[in-house]
Design a protein around this nucleic acid. Structure first.
Lengths: 104, 104
DNA sequence: CGTGTGTATGTCCGTCTGACAATATAGGAA
DNA sequence: TTCCTATATTGTCAGACGGACATACACACG
């Protein structure tokens, strides 16, 4: 693990470290969506959704497909789910240990 | 996946989105270390190492063990390795696709 | 007690990031 | 062409983050 590789990994984690981007990814979980649909679902501004989508796209998390006026975004990789699942596991484990503290 | 849970996950990813913290975690990969040792290995300032360690500790990534003057830090959970491994897999896949682009 | 060492904390500053608004671009319809 | 819609881009501003430095705290030793 060279420092350069760690820098690249840190950049990838940074992409996932934003609540708005996770909400967008969560919306795409079950299929592709247009920007307008994402704006509606996430209740974010249109400009912000576009910006976050560009960040997600340039880092290989989502794919673009243009059809007329609309642009459809979809998942590029399933590994994001694994990452979130592990994080969820960590959260659950922490909640458990907190409950243990309260119980004792 | 409620927005609240996504916020918590984003916070966890944010902890891992810093190069210095990843370097610290990488140093702890094969056993516990004191703050001084981490300062030496990572070539970061002592105050910054302490600050990063506090962030890692308060988010459940590392554990503390005090022995006299020294404080030993170690991994709290192996799941961090899984997270980094998945990210590394993503990086490798991306490099492969780039090479394909150059080859075609 | 005082001194020295290891660790933690507080403060300042430069930098970066996200939200928002305005504007620009692209493409379909009249 | 002109108008309208969907998406992208830009500028600005406020807030957050990391690094450097100084300082405070904890503990061992004489």
């Amino acid at each position: 693990m060279t420092p350069q590789v760690l820098d690249l990994i840190a950049l990838r984690f940074k992409v996932l470290s934003d609540s708005a981007r996770l909400r967008i990814l969560n919306c795409l979980r079950y299929g592709e969506m247009t920007v307008s649909e994402l704006v509606e679902k996430t209740e974010l501004g249109q400009a912000n959704v576009s910006k976050h989508l560009q960040i997600l796209h340039s880092n290989g998390f989502v794919e673009r497909r243009k059809d007329g006026l609309f642009v459809y975004y979809s998942f590029a990789d399933e590994s994001v789910f694994n990452l979130c699942d592990i994080m969820c596991g960590r959260l659950e484990a922490e909640l458990k240990s907190r409950r243990k503290l309260f119980a004792s």
